[in-house]
Design a protein around this nucleic acid. Structure first.
Length: 136
DNA sequence: TTCATGACGAGGT
DNA sequence: AACCTCGCCATGA
């Protein structure tokens, strides 16, 4: 997977090894977000150890390597469902959230004060351990 | 190898 | 609160 050189592997559709590791970390963090709560791109980036890569979290979700992560629980820093258009059909993300008890306004916004996932430092440490176990 | 793009965010008006 | 500008950085053309 080209971890040695750090250069992109042309046969690896999803880019460099570093990027793949980041995507995997995003998956680890996202699977920890409980039902009925939402998380922001920035939060995920921070927990993954790359505070400046909030935008890249979107790439991870778009590619969705596993297909098993609750991508619908990710909203932007203002609570808007900025990735709604990338779901299978219009309104799917909103529906999924409503189904698990998250109120979404008509303009596709969630109140982060009420539904934002509050992760602790302990959570963050736990992720570091998990990253270590998964060698990422 | 540039260059534009964008599921973002912080800071200012 | 809404809106704008600018910084950020992995992708893909």
């Amino acid at each position: 997977m080209d971890r040695g050189t750090g250069k992109a592997d042309p046969k690896q559709k999803t880019g460099s090894g570093a990027a793949v590791d980041f995507y995997r970390r995003v998956g680890v963090v996202l699977r920890a977000v409980p039902e009925g709560r939402v998380v922001t791109y920035g939060q995920i980036a921070l927990l993954c150890g790359r505070p400046k890569n909030a935008r890249q979290v979107g790439y991870a979700l778009r590619n969705d390597l596993s297909g098993q992560v609750p991508a619908h629980r990710v909203v932007n820093g203002q609570g808007f469902l900025s990735g709604a258009a990338s779901f299978d059909y219009p309104g799917l993300q909103k529906q999924l959230l409503m189904d698990e008890g998250v109120a979404v306004s008509p303009d596709n916004r969630v109140d982060l004060k009420k539904f934002g996932w509050r992760n602790t430092l302990k959570d963050a440490m736990g992720f570091l351990d998990e990253f270590e176990r998964e060698k990422i």
